[in-house]
Design a binder for these strands. Structure first.
Length: 483
RNA sequence: CGGGGCGUAGCGCAGUUUGGUAGCGCACUUGGUUUGGGACCAAGGGGUCGCAGGUUCGAAUCCUGUCGCCCCGACCA
């Protein structure tokens, strides 16, 4: 390794050395985002935004396939609307941005820049819904929201972020609950299959639920530093909002009833999850399904061989592109192959094709995969097929690797001392019995900084003592320190 | 809000103790030679040293004030 190369490798702080710094290095070096002059806000650069667009595409398809349609609601929400639901306003008031003036004139009523759109959407729903025939209303919106956070972190917690928020209205509890769980499943499917990030699904505790919700469900992912990240939420809002916004319908039995509502959302935070779950000391690693560039073709074309290599590389590039793979060719003359290899690895491109004079002599190309670093030589005849095959393998391998990591870092104990030790020394998920009492949950948080991420579905358990207080319980909870 | 640290070129930093008119690496520009894991040589461009006062013949350096950022704590959909 040359001297320059050594210095370069140091440019990305090793993950083990300073996780925070590593995270920032990866994002900046991959040119996903940059800091903006507005505190806590970020500029998403084209490379990062293309990733987001690919994610949007995958998720939007699933949202539409489950019967929802996209719409758009205003960025500004009158103060009086936000005030209507008590829990909701209490939850969001400390972090909303206010608009107080229009031009030079002070507004008669202040506006908030939406931190979420429940209130303004409910206001519209109350006008749109009259009859049971109007239900269900299944609407989704892609937009930006603003939450004035004290501590921010790129992608994970920013003052402004992009997201998708679904808002639905139903006839009764059963339908609303079914919708809430259906959308949680859509998120699980999308995040696990497209982003290769394994998640735990479950219900949030009363403490952790959405401000104004009846029940909140979430998908929880484990980052490579052992901290948990809430990757998506789905809320059964009950009839709380319907009551204060007067969203009623005349049912087929002639009775006037309040609708049951749900809301659900995932945000650009998922980009942070991808980075922290898959990234390594060389930079970003992107799952093929959403990678802006799936394959990077690097022709190795010394002057003498340029005429033979470049046309051949171009033909391969076109051929693969036509087969529907997102491939780019890096034929810049001013950078050396090694420079390009590092550059594209930093950007997380899943697969690289190297093709030079030596390969052409043998009728082959070299394939290098980002997830394992392995290289293989493939004959030019089978290149196109092998590329598609490998992209699939990489996607699957990334998921398996992340899942294995999560399993290795998920512990099962009901002993509080052991629990504290694991949380402090190893991090990860700790699955323990919990009595269901809020005070107990709070005490554990104060002792260990670990919170209940969710109460999992489908975890069988026999009755036993609660982790902290010893009360008999058959509830299991996933605990972790979280972002 | 409490404790600590830092503001010097696009980025990362040295210079501050002991005042003398600003430097290094990367990046950038031009020319040439290069290309299988961040190539090399040569020549260039770029800075009101966070801001405002003060001390001094002279301030990046000393003094006072102020603004901003980062880390730890606190707070936290």
């Amino acid at each position: 390794m040359s001297k320059q190369n050594k210095e370069f490798v140091k440019e990305i702080t090793p993950r083990s050395e300073d996780y925070s710094q590593w995270y920032l290095d990866v994002i900046l070096k991959a040119q996903m985002m940059d800091y903006s002059p507005v505190k806590g806000c970020m500029v998403i650069r084209p490379y990062g935004f293309t990733l987001w667009e690919n994610m949007q595409q995958g998720l939007d398809g699933r949202i539409k396939a489950t019967g929802h349609r996209n719409a758009y609601f205003p960025l500004f929400i009158p103060e009086s609307l936000l005030q209507k639901e008590a829990d909701h306003v209490e939850g969001f008031a400390p972090e909303v941005a206010w608009v107080t003036h229009g031009g030079n004139e002070k507004l008669a009523e202040r506006l908030v820049v939406r931190p979420t759109s429940e209130t303004i959407i409910c206001e519209m729903y109350s006008r749109w819904i009259q009859s049971y025939r109007d239900l269900p209303v299944l609407i989704n919106q892609w937009c930006n929201v603003v939450r004035w956070e004290k501590v921010t972190r790129p992608f994970l917690r920013t003052s402004e972020f992009l997201w998708q928020e679904g808002h639905t209205a139903h006839r009764n509890e059963e339908e609303a609950e079914e919708e809430t769980l259906k959308m949680l499943e859509v998120y699980r499917d999308f995040v696990e299959n497209d982003l290769a990030v394994p998640v735990v699904t479950g219900r949030k505790t009363e403490n952790e639920k959405f401000a104004g919700a009846l029940r909140t469900y979430s998908i929880e992912a484990l980052m490579s530093d052992g901290k948990a990240l809430q990757a998506g939420t789905s809320h059964n809002l009950g009839t709380h909002f319907a009551k204060v916004f007067d969203i009623t319908y005349l049912d087929s039995d002639g009775e006037l009833k309040h609708v049951w509502q749900t809301s659900w959302g995932v945000s650009t935070r998922l980009i942070g999850a991808i980075i922290m779950v898959h990234g390594d000391d060389r930079g970003l690693v992107l799952p093929p399904k959403v990678a802006p560039t799936q394959v990077i073709l690097v022709p190795i074309a010394p002057k003498k061989a340029r005429e033979t290599v470049l046309p051949k590389a171009d033909a391969i590039y076109r051929d693969i592109k036509e087969s529907g793979v997102r491939i780019e060719m890096d034929d810049r003359e001013e950078y050396s192959p090694g420079w390009k290899f590092n550059e594209w690895e930093m950007k997380g491109v899943p697969l690289r094709i190297e093709i030079g004079p030596r390969d052409l002599e043998n009728g082959q190309a070299v394939l290098a995969r980002r997830d394992t670093g392995e290289k293989e030589t493939v004959s030019l005849d089978s290149l196109k097929t092998r590329v598609r095959e490998l992209l699939g393998e990489i996607q699957a391998n990334m998921y398996d690797k992340a899942k294995a990591f999560r399993e290795e870092n998920t512990y099962r104990t009901d002993d509080y001392d052991e629990f504290k030790k694991i949380i402090e020394e190893k991090r990860g998920f700790v699955v323990s019995r919990w009595c269901g009492d809020s005070d107990c949950e709070q005490a554990i948080k104060e002792d260990t900084k670990a919170t209940i991420r969710c109460l999992p579905f489908n975890e069988e358990t026999t009755s036993g003592p609660c982790l902290r207080c010893g009360t008999e319980s058959d509830k299991l909870a996933y605990f972790a320190r979280a972002y």
